[in-house]
């Protein structure tokens, strides 16, 4: 069984994001980029399924500029067998990514696609669900536990109010939540090995996918600032402030 893992190159989660002065977007010049944290979890889960003998191959995929090769090399350093880059300079929105993935799934025929639940840049939380819909496959989003056996997946999902468990036949789409696993780190020998692993490049046109954005960004602004208030000396002062000034208790 083959597993496809889409990985997105995003701003590193530790970076403090700044809006550009002209309001056209956020400033990405010279900031540290990394693999979307949820996608690291997706790669890890796929590797564990391969190590358990359930999967035979893990293919990482990224859509975006040539710089995404770096993210794919990271995925391969972690253990992915090979990688696919769908290279474009165009702005990619989730529907376009889902359609590109749909085209790749048609070529690669994986039994499982594991994505992150959300990219920490656009915070869209859409791509996996859209892909599942386009494929007509079942989906299990926000997974905190994944079992694969006898051509079926049993997935525990984090939902408002608790957890639920779904069962579904493969092929299926799964998206990861934070508590699915603890991703490993890439070792130096594996980073070296990853440089020689195969990386195939397509253009959206090769896949006959129109990636034109459907949403136009008119402007990006900083949220209204929240200012630091005061330091209170002790509990008595805190309680007095909450009662008399803020009037919230």
């Amino acid at each position: 069984m083959k597993i496809l893992v889409p990985v997105k190159r995003v701003i590193d989660y530790n970076v403090r994001v700044r809006v550009k002065a002209d309001g056209s977007g956020v400033d990405l010049a010279n900031v540290k980029m990394a693999m979307n944290p949820f996608d690291e979890i997706a790669v890890e889960e796929a590797l564990r399924l391969r190590e358990a003998g359930i999967a035979s191959e893990v293919v990482a995929l990224s859509a975006g500029t040539a710089a995404c090769q770096e993210t794919l090399r990271t995925a391969m350093a972690l253990g992915a067998d090979r990688a696919i880059l769908v290279e474009t300079e165009a702005e990619l929105q989730p529907l376009a990514v889902a359609r590109l993935l749909h085209a790749i799934v048609a070529r690669e025929a994986p039994q499982l696609v594991i994505l992150g639940k959300q990219a920490i840049d656009d915070d869209a939380n859409q791509t996996g669900q859209m892909l599942a819909a386009l494929l007509g496959w079942p989906q299990a989003t926000f997974a905190s536990k994944l079992l694969v056996a006898n051509g079926r997946a049993t997935v525990t999902r984090e939902i408002d109010g608790g957890v639920e468990t779904l069962e579904m036949p493969l092929p299926a789409v799964v998206t990861t939540d934070l508590r699915l696993n603890e991703p490993r780190y890439a070792t130096l020998p594996n980073i070296m090995k990853a440089k020689k692993k195969p990386l195939e490049v397509f253009k959206p046109a090769d896949l006959a996918v129109d990636v034109a954005p459907r949403l136009q960004t008119l402007g990006v602004a900083e949220p209204p600032p929240r200012h630091a208030g005061i330091r209170v000396a002790d509990v008595a002062e805190l309680v007095a402030k909450l009662k008399n000034e803020a009037k919230v208790i």
Partner: peptide, 16 residues
């Protein structure tokens, strides 16, 4: 809509 963990607010226009 908020993006980047709410560090920015994007105003978007749908063409659909």
């Amino acid at each position: 809509r908020p993006i980047y963990a709410g560090n920015a607010l994007a105003t978007v226009k749908s063409t659909d």
